[in-house]
Design a binder for these strands. Structure first.
Length: 689
DNA sequence: GTAGGGTTAG
């Protein structure tokens, strides 16, 4: 007869409870099992069961229960138990606790082993505490685990997480026998630090060593490709993922969707999204982002309606994307809807979401709500970024004095302005024509030790340009210590347009065409300047130049908000019955305005055609159609809100001013640069935009 | 009887 030893019996009991533990799907059943094991005393005696319960509690995020079991265990010197507890902390993101626990382990004289370090290093990486990571690295070397592949991969990740990519690379280069996980760690390190190109070079090196990408590598590679906007490589990664069956892994789909979004390939993203059955929150977010990034904010909002019908819960990133979509659309009604949704669904509003909501209201021309939300920020959470958002909000509406007041208040309350604060303040001064104040702010950059950026100069050039001080603006550019970028020259070009300075415009344009040869807007602006001076020959040359480069002027599109919906109008004749009435109204409006003294500004039509035809082309501008629609349908007590994807033309601008006086209507127009508030015959931009 | 690389937003 076989005699059973006590070891056999214990292992029988352990496997018995193992089975029960596996079926503990709820916290309640786990607590029940815990109490049984406690009364029998088993939990304190068995390292195996103790560890299992610690991990189970950790997965239910009840880390203090886990710690209690650890603290009361008989085998407190078991490094396996220490490692298990450490794992609990790390997997729940309690990195500071993890590091404290690791130090405690030292205090108790427990030796770390090859299983301990990967956990500790992960905590060092997540908290970005490189100094402590280096201490751990020394300990790794001293304890002789410096050549363990898992530990080395952890070191690579730790240095990458702390942003010290060179040190990550040193560890990586010193490794023997690198597998695909190690390579991916290093590739990801480059990708995360914004060096997508280097990441892809490393992929090639890996493949040269006959290692194949697995699905995690694919996720990283798709991100790197997205950074570079390299559609061709993007499609090849997609193909690779398909051939290897990696699309079953949701993160691969998410990453490829995001990549297509960044490459501007909306249709590919849509196809992939449609073919994906297993959609997680991030999958929806990636598709929403793809739409928003590509200027398809309405599509994003309709997709969100679909998402609400699915069984996936939106998170704070979903909220952020939708808020930016609403900001893009400038639709206040949508803004309120999304804001309500966030509140009703208890979506956590972190600082960046809060700022985004303030920015959204500002872009929907509801500055009262924006200000109220700013004032609602708890004092201990108030951050320079929120001040910046508010200042920018006032600035884009031409409320320069208000922006300056906020700026002063911010300084009085002891907040340190940063480079973004100055961009916002300077831009506010520029939009409001506050030149002396703007110059004073510019000099304050030094006072606050903020490094000058081209953007700051662009604001100054815009400010001087608005005042007609073109030579001073040009001198400022010539004396810049930095290399002027396209924004700086662009501001000068705009000023040249307003003041009809073709010679200086040519200088600005030459620089712009060198810096941004693919930017359609600058060609259009220069061509308009030539058209203003009736230099049709140069207009023709520029047009041909654009054609040769395959550049096309983007179609003008205007939206007007009515009854919770946005109605879009493009320039030109539209023949459906819906717009026929609008046409009648435009014609009537234009006639009435002519009687009120409006003279059409034909310089807005940049074609070399007969004057009579020009008149006809002008009245069909999308924003005029939108305005007519608004006059017909919107309650006269409410402002008419119009958004437009390009700049407003001079004739529309003067028409809008007159409409605000003749019909006594408030009109708020958001163009690509700023807001125009039309009231009583005047515009908040003071006729410079 | 434990461990390493990963996706959206900013």
């Amino acid at each position: 007869m076989l005699r059973r030893t006590s070891t056999n019996i214990i292992s029988d009991i352990e496997s018995h409870y193992d089975k029960i533990l596996k079926n503990c799907n709820t916290l309640r059943s786990l607590i029940q099992l815990h109490s049984v094991l406690t009364t029998t005393g088993l939990i304190k005696q068995s390292v195996h069961l103790g560890a299992k319960i610690i991990i189970s509690y950790s997965t239910f995020k009840h880390i203090e229960h886990a710690r209690f079991i650890f603290n009361t265990h008989d085998h407190i010197s078991s490094s396996f138990l220490w490692n298990t507890m450490l794992r609990g902390y790390v997997n729940n993101g309690f990195h500071a606790h993890a590091l404290g626990f690791y130090k405690l382990m030292h205090g108790y004289g427990i030796k770390s082993n090859n299983f301990t370090y990967p956990f500790v290093l992960k905590s060092c990486a997540s908290d970005g505490i490189c100094s402590y990571g280096k201490v751990v690295h020394c300990e790794v070397v001293k304890s002789g685990f410096g050549t363990d592949g898992y530990v080395e991969a952890g070191l690579v990740d730790m240095y990458a997480g702390c942003g010290v990519i060179e040190d990550a690379r040193k560890v990586f280069d010193g490794m023997g026998g690198r597998d695909v996980v190690c390579w991916t760690a290093m590739i990801s390190a480059y990708e995360q630090s914004g060096r997508g190109g280097t990441a892809l070079e490393l992929v090639k090196e890996m493949q040269d060593e006959s290692l194949r990408m697995d699905w995690v590598t694919c996720v990283t590679v798709a991100s790197a490709v997205g950074q570079l906007g390299d559609v061709k490589r993007g499609k090849s990664v997609h193909g690779y993922a398909v051939r290897n069956g990696f699309l079953d892994e949701v993160p691969v789909v998410n990453s490829i969707l995001a990549m297509y979004g960044k490459c501007g390939e909306v249709e590919y993203a849509e196809m992939l999204f449609e073919h994906t059955k297993k959609r997680e929150c991030i999958t929806w977010n990636s598709m929403l982002t793809c739409y928003t990034q590509n200027g398809l904010a309405s599509e994003a909002l309709s997709l969100f309606e679909q998402m609400k019908l699915s069984d996936v819960n939106p998170n704070e990133v979903t909220a952020l994307v939708l808020v930016s979509a609403c900001a893009y659309l400038g639709s206040r009604q949508h803004a309120i809807k999304i804001h309500d949704f966030i509140t009703v669904n208890n979506i956590e509003i972190n600082l960046s979401l809060w700022n985004a909501i303030i920015d959204m209201y500002a872009k929907c021309a509801d500055l009262d709500t924006a200000l109220k939300l700013f004032q609602d920020i708890p004092l201990d959470q108030l951050h320079v970024s929120s001040w910046n958002t508010l200042i920018a909000g006032y600035g884009m509406h031409g409320y320069g004095k208000e922006a300056l007041n906020v700026f002063n208040q911010m300084k009085e309350e002891g907040f340190q302005p940063n480079h973004i604060t100055f961009t916002s303040v300077l831009s506010a001064c520029s939009h409001a024509g506050l030149i002396d104040e703007g110059k004073k702010c510019f000099s304050e950059l030094e006072t606050f030790a903020v490094v000058q950026e081209p953007k700051h100069y662009a604001c100054m050039v815009d400010m001087l340009g608005r005042a007609g001080q073109l030579n001073e603006a040009y001198e400022l550019i010539k004396n810049m210590k930095l290399q002027p970028n396209d924004e700086v020259w662009g501001a000068l070009l705009l000023a040249c347009k307003s003041y009809g300075n073709t010679n200086l415009a040519r200088v600005a344009a030459d620089n712009l065409f060198n810096l941004e040869p693919e930017h359609t807007g600058y060609y259009v602006l220069m061509s308009n300047i030539y058209a203003d001076s009736k230099n049709w020959e140069q207009v023709g040359i520029l047009r041909q130049d654009m054609k040769n480069k395959g550049l096309r002027k983007p179609a003008a599109l205007s939206f007007v908000e009515f009854n919770n919906e946005l109605h879009g109008f493009h320039t030109g004749e539209q023949l459906d019955s819906f717009t026929r009435d609008v046409y009648q109204k435009v014609k009537q409006m234009v006639t009435e305005l002519k009687m009120a003294g409006h003279v059409p500004d034909l310089s807005c039509v940049f074609h070399d055609v007969e004057e009579e035809d020009k008149d006809g082309m002008l009245i069909y501008h999308g924003e005029k159609l939108a305005l007519a629609f608004g006059l017909m349908n919107i309650d006269p007590k409410l402002p008419i809100r119009i958004t437009k994807n390009l700049r407003v033309c001079t004739d529309c601008h003067s028409t809008f001013k007159l409409v605000s006086r003749v019909y006594g209507r408030k009109v708020i127009v958001r163009d690509v640069n700023r807001f125009h508030h039309f009231e009583d015959g005047l515009c908040s931009c003071n006729d410079y935009w």
